[in-house]
Design a protein around this nucleic acid. Structure first.
Length: 199
DNA sequence: TCTAAGATGGCA
DNA sequence: GCCATCTTAGAA
């Protein structure tokens, strides 16, 4: 039977149950879907990610398990959301096996459309509305209540695979804004993408 | 209890 | 380069 209408390929938890350094580059090009309370959806492509994991001095769970980093020890396919600098939320996708603290930070998105509630100052800036981990949570209206939630359809957030014919041109570099583990090349982004947070 | 630092971002 | 803003982890 011919299948012209491709159904969305949902990212399943078991696909995420790998080390974050493997999942992180694979998530670039995937689609993050945000469904709001009124049923409306905002779709966007992940264009920049960073991996955090065990034996990683920059990982929030490097020292020990605490109430804040608890979600990182949870099962793959859930979120880890935390507040940084008392101002911004950051969204992570939990990866790897249970009890292994591991997550992928979503650092930048390319929005499919500009939501009605944001008023971009200039057209040029609208491309960068979600260029940064704090900015994207702002646009998608993600706060701490999103921590440790399941990523699945009918939830506020879920992931869809990139089309099989889309092979992203990836750049791998060091992570942004760290004082520890700054030498590890665990950041990936889409080459020549205006929505990436930093070059 | 107290305090310094933090996976940021906007503006001068 | 400076700073807003506040939770959290780690020290005392």
């Amino acid at each position: 039977m011919m299948n012209f209408h491709r159904t969305a390929q949902i990212v399943e938890p078991n696909w995420l149950a790998r080390p974050s350094t493997e999942v992180s580059p694979d998530l670039v090009g995937c689609i993050l879907v945000r469904q709001f309370g009124d049923g409306s959806q905002l779709r966007s492509m992940i264009v920049e990610t960073e991996a955090y994991g065990p034996e990683d001095p920059a990982c929030h769970a490097y020292r020990r398990r605490t109430p804040r980093n608890e979600a990182m020890f949870g099962s793959a396919g859930r979120t880890y959301v935390y507040l940084i600098y008392g101002l911004y939320y950051c969204l992570n996708v939990v990866t790897d096996l249970d009890d292994v603290p591991s997550a992928v930070l979503i650092r930048a998105l390319q929005l499919e459309s500009v939501p009605s509630w944001v008023t971009p100052p200039t057209p040029a800036k609208s491309a960068r509305l979600a260029a940064g981990p704090g900015k994207l949570c702002n646009v998608l209206q993600i706060d701490r209540s999103f921590n440790a939630q399941v990523l699945a359809p009918c939830q506020p957030l879920w992931l869809e695979h990139r089309p099989p014919d889309f092979v992203p041109d990836l750049v791998q570099t060091t992570r942004i804004g760290l004082t520890k583990g700054a030498d590890l090349p665990w950041r990936w982004y889409l080459n020549n993408c205006p929505a990436v947070s930093k070059l």
